[in-house]
Amino acid sequence: MFQRTLFTQRKYRRETPGMAMAPMVDVLTILLVFLLKSFSMDPPVRPNDNTFTLARSTSSAQVQAATDVDITPAGIYVNGWRVASTSYYSTHDDALIQELYERLQQAGGGDVNLRVDASIPYGLVRKAIFSLRTAGVERLSMVAQARESL
């Protein structure tokens, strides 16, 4: 009797593949919304340098096109070109980063996006800002990773 009931229930169980698709559509919708929210056309900051990490910020302001000055543990770069050594200016007491100053002065100051590795101590950033303002930079933005980054 018991076995017969089990067999009867199994026999009349209906498969409904259409209904199993609904949660999958839900998951995909959530994934799509998440991807659209974190959608970014910003190019990678330093694609060949895996160790470079920007600090995080709650700011949501867009990064404007400007001269890029990168400070990484390996060196100081202007628009991707290495101009000075990080270790030298971290250990010496020079207030001005001469190479950075000269390069920016040649470029006529203008606007600068300063992209600094999260681990760089402020002593070096202070020297960079001093060099930029001495070179006549008019607008300075520090670039950070937005909180919405994946």
């Binding site: 959608f39 900051v45 910020s57 700011s59 949501s60 302001a61 990064v63 996006n113 933005s141 919405e148």
Partner: peptide, 13 residues
């Protein structure tokens, strides 16, 4: 899409 979304923090000189 890029995994990194950038944000600018304006600094007064």
């Amino acid at each position: 899409t890029s995994l990194q979304k950038l944000a600018a923090v304006d600094i007064q000189l």
